[in-house]
Every structure is written in structure tokens, then in C-alpha cells.
Design a protein around this nucleic acid. Sequence first.
DNA 1: CGGGGGCTTGAGGCCACTCAACGATAGTGG
DNA 2: CCACTATCGTTGAGTGGCCTCAAGCCCCCG
Lengths: 227, 227
Amino acid sequence: MLTHLTPTSLPRPHSFSEFGMTAESNPSINLNEFTYRRGSEIYGEKEPAQYVYQVLSGTVRSYKLLSDGRRQIGAFHVPRDIFGLENGGFHRFTTEAVVDTAVRLIKRESLEAIAENDGALIKNLLFMTATNLQHAEDHMLLLGRKTSMERVAAFLIEMDRRLTAAGILALPMTRRDIADYLGLTLETISRSLSYLRELGVLRFIDNNQRHVVIMDRRQLVEFDRQT
Amino acid sequence: MLTHLTPTSLPRPHSFSEFGMTAESNPSINLNEFTYRRGSEIYGEKEPAQYVYQVLSGTVRSYKLLSDGRRQIGAFHVPRDIFGLENGGFHRFTTEAVVDTAVRLIKRESLEAIAENDGALIKNLLFMTATNLQHAEDHMLLLGRKTSMERVAAFLIEMDRRLTAAGILALPMTRRDIADYLGLTLETISRSLSYLRELGVLRFIDNNQRHVVIMDRRQLVEFDRQT
DNA sequence: CGGGGGCTTGAGGCCACTCAACGATAGTGG
DNA sequence: CCACTATCGTTGAGTGGCCTCAAGCCCCCG
């Protein structure tokens, strides 16, 4: 394992309350924390699912690969998100840390044992699975029918909503990650962002252009023809 | 409503046993049957979800529309499939009958009332939602990263598995439906099928080329580069 | 300070799209 | 029973949006 234990002083902004439990309320569950270095794998596709994860800090990408290396990222997971929840016993994505990332993890078997007698917990699992489904359904529309500009605009709006909701956006992932999320190439991502900057919809701050973006959400939605 | 009641003599090949219940075992649930004429809408996106549906015969398409008419079909539902199950109170797709279709329906509220005290039922709902999620995840990979030939091959393999599992396939949907499912155009679908026929992977029987296809599953998987 | 990763930008190419024509079939109404 | 029309599918010709390939810059980091 490339993982290593994190100091207990790590931020704990949120608990596993989405599961209707905490370590305090149910001592049979051990909530451990790990950190993963940028680029390291958290688990692989088709591996047995031992844990469920919650992002504490950092960002995680979930992806599938074709045999020749083509990659489709199905989701990015940001702080508070829960991932790795599988109904069958095996993971259906490979996940990696996009940047140095801290996660809290819970043993799958203990989760299932409790779910057996806890209707509220199962309902929470159902709700989370349905949320993931909704995201995937929206993403199918994007991948199947939207233009490159619409995809990039939708991506920025999604990240703005999930990361900050403030119009100032620190993107943790590379152009290649974005491309593999949107079904495009990194060059197309770069060109689209440059074009949005030319139009004044985006501004890059920080002399390194990559990370921080100021966006005009109003103008951006014009580029993403919604439903 | 464009629907009309079906005669009680309609085939009842399968029950709602996926819900862990039947009308006999739980008389508080009324399982009604309806038929929909080819092309008619079953429910619209964002409508309140009143019913959950099971296909008895025929085929249903679930889709989302962009404002300019671009359409993405998220799934086809064939006999035995359950659709319209929403975690929130509103449908997230529009659904239409691809051909004349008979469905069995169950009131959502009665389902929820029973789920309240029935852990096995909730687990079934979770399982079905997870199955839908898995399909959507695989479809994202197809839409984001596969070539037209790979998509068409994957489509034929999926339909062969779900409709017959026999190598002889009666496709109920049009080229346009297939195109909107695979994120392509109808012309590209037609050309891909013609090409597969030239190669001897497919044969059309029935003088109308549309409906019945004999396929060589072995050869087809060569065209769909899997994971 | 050398190397590698990430980003941008340009030039050219190709896969899927667009536009168009045509044939076949099913449904409709006189 | 037969136009008439609409729908569906196939195929060809040409286009274009995104991809591929390449060069160069910047920054980080050993």
C-alpha cells in the first residue's frame, strides 16, 4: 500500500453523518484516516471493495480504462463526498488522488452488518446511490450530445458549485483530467478555456495559469445549453 | 392521457417479485396494467413520479432533451425491466413507448409506505438503483471514449444479451433511437451496420432490413474493445 | 541547472456530421 | 383498391469540429 497514516491533527470538517453514524455513537465502527500522495491509487477497478471513503481534503478521480489506454473519468470527488460505495462486492472504477488527499474510511463489512438492522442507514445508502445515478445520467447527456464549449462551461459551473460556490475556483486537476472527464482532448480543453478568457468570461489569476480561475457564472450558463 | 386499459388477458410473464411482493401477498398494493401506443409518452421529465413501471411487452426509451432538440437516450427498457423508480419525487427522464407496449404499474406512495417497514424491500430498491448506476457508468465510458464501430458493436451485444441471448435479434427501435442512445447520428448507425453486414458479422433477415438481425457474437466482441 | 510535467498554440488530418437523393414500407383517406 | 403521405433506411458527397502531431514556454524539483 502506498498509503500512510495521517496525523490526528488533520482537519475533520465533516463526519460520516451521512451514514447516520459516527465513531462516538457506534463504537463498533472504526473510522480511520489515511492520506494519499498526489497520483497514487486508492483502489483499482474490480478489486474487492473493503472500504467506503469520505474525502476530507484534496480531490479524487474515479475512472475506467479501455485496453488501449483510453480513459473515462466518471467523477471527481471533493471534500465531503463519499465514494467507493459499491452494491456488489467489487469496485467498478479505479480511483486515484488528484492531489495530496486525506480520506476517512469505514470498513464495508461493518457497514453492512449495521445496515442489516438499520433501516435509516439503508435509506441513506439508497439516497447516496441515487445521487450518484443522477450525476451519471446528466453526464451521459453531456458526453453524448454537448459540444466542447458546452462541456467545458458545464464543467466549470459544476466545479464552482461543488468547490466554492463563490465564482473563484481553484481547480485541482490537470487539463488531461478535465479532458478525460468531458470526453475530449487536453488541447481542446486548453483552447476552450483560452477562448472563454478572450471573451472575458474567465480570468486566470496566479501567474501559473493552471489553478485559479475567476468566472462569470451568468455568462457561462449561456454557453451550456441546458435541458 | 393517451393510455388505455389493457384487457386482463394480457400476458403476465413476470411479477413485481423484484420488489419482494405481489398483489396476492400484499393486497394493499394494486398492480394495474396499461398499454401505450407506439410513440406515446408515458411520463415527462420533471413530472411528479406517481408510479413505478415494469415492462410486460414492448420496449420503452428514457431520454433527456436539450433546448434545441438534441436528445440523449439513457436506456431502453425491455420486458421484465423496471423503470420510473426515482429517489426524489420527480422523474429525471421522459419515457415513451418505442412500440406498442404493455406495462404494469404500482403506486409510488404505496411502495414507499411499505418500504418504511420492510428492510428487504428497501434493499431491493437499493439493488435496482445500483444496477441502473452501473449501466450508466458503463455508458459514460462508451459515450466519452469509444468509436462509432465500438459503440454499435457494444449496443448489439447488449441487446442480444437483454432481448434474446440467442444470436437472433429483433430490434424494436429505429436508427434514430439507436443513434441517440449511442451519441451518434442515424446515418453513422446505418453505415456501421452495413459495414458489419459486409464483413459477415451481421445478416439481416426479413425483407425489411430493419428488424431482425443474425449476429456473430464472437466476431462482434472483437469490435468492442472492452475494459 | 538539467529534466520532466503541464499548458498553450499552430498546422494539418480524419472521423463523424451534414445535406441530399432515393427506395421501400406502412398508414390514411377517398 | 389505389393514390397520397409520412416514416424509415441506405448511400453518396462534401464539410467541419475535434483530434493528432509538433514546437515552445513556464514552473517545479531533484
